[in-house]
Amino acid sequence: MRRILMLGVTAAGVALAAPSFAQEKLVVAIYGGNWGTAIEKCVFQPFTAATGIGVTSEPSVSTVTRSKLQQQKGNPALDAVWIDGGISELAMADGTVGTIDPKKVPNIANVIDEGVYKRKDGSIYAASTGFYAVGLTYNTKEVKEAPSSWWDLWKKEYEGKVIIPSPVNAAGIPFFLTINKAAGGDIKNVQPGVDRLKTLKVSSYYDASGQGASNFQSGEAIIGAHYATAAWGLADQGLPIAYAVPKEGAPSSDIRIHLVEGTKKKESAEKLINFAISKEAATCLSENLYVGPATKGVTLTDKAKARMPWGPNGSVKSLFLPNWEEVNANRDRLTEIWNKQVAGK
């Protein structure tokens, strides 16, 4: 009797499990917070509706996603991953991200050159789904004249009310390098940048974007280097916050999608990537997150157009896209210089 019962249970189990074989489910790493929500809304939901392929999202930050891929190497639990520029290059060097084949992902032909990332051998390892930038974010009530240059942060009237990102923030080192370049330095010689940053009277350095935003909310900061997306998010809450692109360039990065090396659901994952870089998905992400679209031919509403990271009239050419391999190779050294000479001044 017991055996018969067991058989019955097993049969029922198989019967229940069967449909899930037919309807594959992808596991995809995305971001937390409103970025993750926007990806679910703009990519996953319409993708599942169109193809019947389910998507389980796994929210985490880029560095953690990269670590997960390293641990899962050879037998990945993830099928596709979103990782930011900078960390994306490290994942490529780890050999944990696969190659995106333009034949299987035809929409890649529609992505601008700056948004297609290739290895030395020309194979594609990542595709951009939107650019973001750090520029001059300011309180329009306290800052009378709209800033136009990074050097405006040094103005006497803003002393002690300025915030800039720390090296823990993804924009920290790129910001440091932007200032250094504007001051006449280069990656080998960061002394000009250090000398300038030492004299900047900041209120605080922020690690997380939310910390920066909270400083604007409480009035602790009235101007600073902050993400355009965060600035417009505050403006949407009714705060007197605006964003301007500095003429020396706004350090930028992007959110990129990758195929995981060795995924068992390659075909479905490729379909998802193709969908994520489609015109519809790119338009939706840009309208929701105000990221600059990497897909060609995206038409935006006037509101979104005015809030692009490159400003109302710019393009990807107005962004300062760091040479990430150079940044990664120097991250250690630059962070130590920052710790000792800028934060610990």
Binding site: S166, P167, V168, V202, S204, D207, R331
Partner: peptide, 20 residues
């Protein structure tokens, strides 16, 4: 601390999360 004072736990986090 607003990044102006650095304690050990912050340095450790920095090495694991940012400098890698």
């Amino acid at each position: 601390s607003g990044g102006k004072k650095t304690v050990m736990s912050m340095l450790i986090y920095q090495q694991y999360a940012a400098t890698l």
